[in-house]
Design a protein around this nucleic acid. Sequence first.
DNA 1: CGCGGATTGATCGCGCACGATCTATCTTGT
DNA 2: ACAAGATAGATCGTGCGCGATCAATCCGCG
Lengths: 152, 152
Amino acid sequence: MPAASPPSPVPQLAEMLCFSVYAANHALTRVYKPLLEPLGLTYPQYLVMLSLWGEDGQTVGRIGDQLFLESSTVTPLLKRLEAAGLVSRARDQADERVVRVRLTEQGRALRDKAASIPECILQATGLELDAALRLRDEMGRLRDSLAARDED
Amino acid sequence: MPAASPPSPVPQLAEMLCFSVYAANHALTRVYKPLLEPLGLTYPQYLVMLSLWGEDGQTVGRIGDQLFLESSTVTPLLKRLEAAGLVSRARDQADERVVRVRLTEQGRALRDKAASIPECILQATGLELDAALRLRDEMGRLRDSLAARDED
DNA sequence: CGCGGATTGATCGCGCACGATCTATCTTGT
DNA sequence: ACAAGATAGATCGTGCGCGATCAATCCGCG
């Protein structure tokens, strides 16, 4: 077959950085799924728990900031975690606008059961630790650049 | 504050490769949104159109393979593209199980209007072309590794 | 004190994304 | 030729993820 019929300006999916990020993200959540299922968590729920394990008692807004998500995403997510008995949600007494999210005993206990997951994921990436860290940094910078171009 | 209270095995969000991919993916779709809105497309719909601009008349299954998506995701997506008048869906006469997806005149015409988008995205990434291509390849390999660890 | 704007979450509607399941069609073995 | 299995899409229910909107609370200024 010829090289290109008209001088095609259409990039193939495989050629696009954005698609590779999109596909890698899906592949990641698929690898996480069987690891998180025994804990009763989805991948976004796991990210919220990670955030709370790092700092308990955060507000809804702060969790959203850390995960780069809107309240319309975080609120229902937290309600499901609450329904699962992993967190509690309560208005802050000093500022009734704010909702504080706190780990329950069960939520804290889950931390140990999740301890082996990062190792499993790193394994699945097929990367050495330093390569993974370098890639993480590059993706972080990419995110920052994209977010910066988003204010206008 | 001290370096770490107990020898904490909890990785912070910012430390995790998977989260950086997750966040970069979201940031990408946010950058795409205002570019695609004038075309009446969402980001996944744009990916489908890209695939069809590259090869018209694909089956539903093949589109799913290219995008790494299930039929339960692709079918409704295609229905929306059909409702928008961009594609037609019809059973293959030779094999009635198969549905062929074809661009309409309008769907083909959209290709020109979308031509400037990849340039805009590359710009927003803040990357030189060669750096973007390298990153694309790394993400592609990452996806492949993860998908491979998924067969078991 | 009290009004006006700002901040914080919650709600709603829509569009992915998946696993599980279903139906229709095709293929294979005998 | 026909039953058994395979294959291709479609459907359903659940859970993100967002923009737009709303209600409640807080803050600041007169």
